[in-house]
Nucleic acid binder design. Structure first.
Length: 304
RNA sequence: GGUACCAUAGCUCAGUUGGUAGAGCAACGGACUGAAAAUCCGUGUGUCCCUGGUUCAAUUCCAGGUGGUACCA
C-alpha cells in the first residue's frame, strides 16, 4: 500500500514570516511550495504583494506565484481545482508538499473542499451591481427574500456582496442558494498539517511597518504607477494600491498614503487572525521557532 | 513682559443654560463558500490640564497656576 502523502500548510497573518519558514521547510524536505495568496498570483504586482523574490524563487520551486495577469479573472473555486491538480501531479514525486499563504478562504477550499456552484455570470453581476448602486441595498434584500427565504434569514443582510452572490446563484441555477450550499467538509486522500505563525501583536505591527518601508524602497510606487491602467481590476482592490493610487491622483500626500497603508495592513492582519483563530487544527509557532521542522517530522512519524 | 483665545478619548474636535460627556478617524472584538489583501457587523476605552473658591452638586461659573497659539511690546 502506498504511503500516505502530507500537505504542510504554513499560514498566518501578513508579515508573520511565512515565506521564509516555508522555504526552510521546503529545502529541508527537498520539496516544492504552492502559494495560497490571492494577490501573489498576479505577475505585475510582486512588490506590493510581498511575493517571494527572484532569489527566494530560485531556491525552491514555487507554484501559483506570478502565474496570472491583472487582466485575468480568478476565484477560490478555480484555485481549489488548480491546487488539487497540482497536488495530484506533485505527490507522484514528493511525499510532502508545502502550501503557504494568508488567504483563509483559499486555504480552506483546499483543505476542506468547496461546494460546486456556478461561476458568476458577468452580465448578471453587472446588472445587480448597478441595481445596488442606483436603488440601494433594500432592493437586493427583497429580491433574495423572494428567491431564497431560508438563506435570507441567515445572511448578513447589510453585505451587498453576499446578497448579490446568493441572488446570482439562484437565478443562474434555478435552485435555492441555501440548497446548494452544503458546506460539508470533503475527505482528502492526503494528510494535512497546519502550521500557524504568529507574534505578539506589537511585534507583528512593527514588522508590518518595517516591511512597508522596505517595499517602498524596492520600487513599489513605480510598480503602482505602471499598474494604474488596471486600477479598476479586482486584483488591485488591494491594500497599498488603493492608497498609492490616491497619492498619484493627488488626493493624499505620500506620507499620508504610507501611513494609511500601514494602518490598513494592520487591519488586514487582524481580519486574517480572526479567521485563523477559529480553526482548531492549526498548531501555532513563532516564525523563528526552530521546533517547527521537528514538529513536522514527528507528525510524519505519527501519520505514516 | 502685556493682552486675547485655547486646554475634553490614542488623534481631530463637539458638548454640558451646573446633575461626571459624544462624533469622525484610530484601536479592540466578530462574521465570512466563485470579488476574500475583498466585503460587512459590533464595542467608548476619559483625573473633561492643575490647585483653590462658590454650590446640595463644578468638566461647566470665579480666581490663581501651568502649557499652547495669536497679536502687541
Amino acid at each position: 500500500m502506498a504511503k500516505k502523502k502530507t500537505l504542510v500548510v504554513v499560514l498566518g497573518p501578513t508579515a508573520s514570516g511565512k515565506t521564509d519558514v516555508a522555504i526552510r521547510l521546503a529545502k529541508y524536505f527537498d520539496t516544492e511550495i504552492i502559494s495560497a495568496d490571492s494577490r501573489q498570483f498576479y505577475r505585475e504586482i510582486p512588490i506590493g504583494t510581498a511575493a517571494p523574490t527572484a532569489q527566494q524563487l530560485s531556491k525552491v520551486t514555487h507554484h501559483l506565484v506570478g502565474n496570472l495577469s491583472l487582466n485575468d479573472d480568478y476565484n477560490v473555486s478555480r484555485f481549489e481545482q488548480d491546487v488539487m491538480a497540482l497536488l495530484k501531479e506533485k505527490f507522484r514525486v514528493h511525499d510532502l508538499l508545502i502550501m503557504t499563504g494568508g488567504s483563509g478562504l483559499y486555504i480552506d477550499a483546499v483543505c476542506k473542499g468547496i461546494d460546486s456552484l456556478p461561476d458568476p455570470d458577468p452580465l448578471l453581476r453587472k446588472t445587480l451591481q448597478e441595481k445596488w448602486q442606483q436603488q440601494g441595498i433594500e432592493v437586493l434584500q427583497q429580491q433574495l427574500q423572494q428567491l431564497d427565504a431560508e438563506y435570507y434569514e441567515q445572511v448578513d443582510r447589510k453585505n451587498h456582496k453576499r446578497l448579490m452572490r446568493a441572488i446570482e446563484v439562484c437565478l443562474q441555477t434555478g435552485q435555492k442558494y441555501s440548497e446548494l450550499r452544503l458546506n460539508k467538509p470533503q475527505k482528502r486522500d492526503f494528510n494535512i498539517l497546519k502550521i500557524g505563525l504568529d507574534l505578539p501583536r506589537e511585534q507583528l505591527f512593527a514588522r508590518i511597518n518595517r516591511r512597508t518601508e522596505i517595499m517602498l524602497s524596492n520600487g513599489w510606487l513605480e510598480e503602482a504607477r505602471s499598474a494604474l491602467p488596471f486600477r479598476h481590476k479586482n486584483a488591485l482592490n488591494t491594500v497599498g494600491y488603493k492608497e498609492l493610487f490616491a497619492y498619484l491622483d493627488g488626493e493624499l500626500t505620500l506620507e499620508e498614503a504610507v501611513d494609511k497603508i500601514k494602518t490598513n495592513t494592520r487591519r488586514y492582519a487582524k481580519r486574517q487572525l480572526t479567521w485563523f483563530k477559529k480553526d482548531k487544527e492549526i498548531h501555532w509557532f513563532s516564525p523563528e521557532d526552530e521546533e517547527i521542522r521537528q514538529f513536522v517530522e514527528e507528525f510524519l512519524v505519527g501519520n505514516p
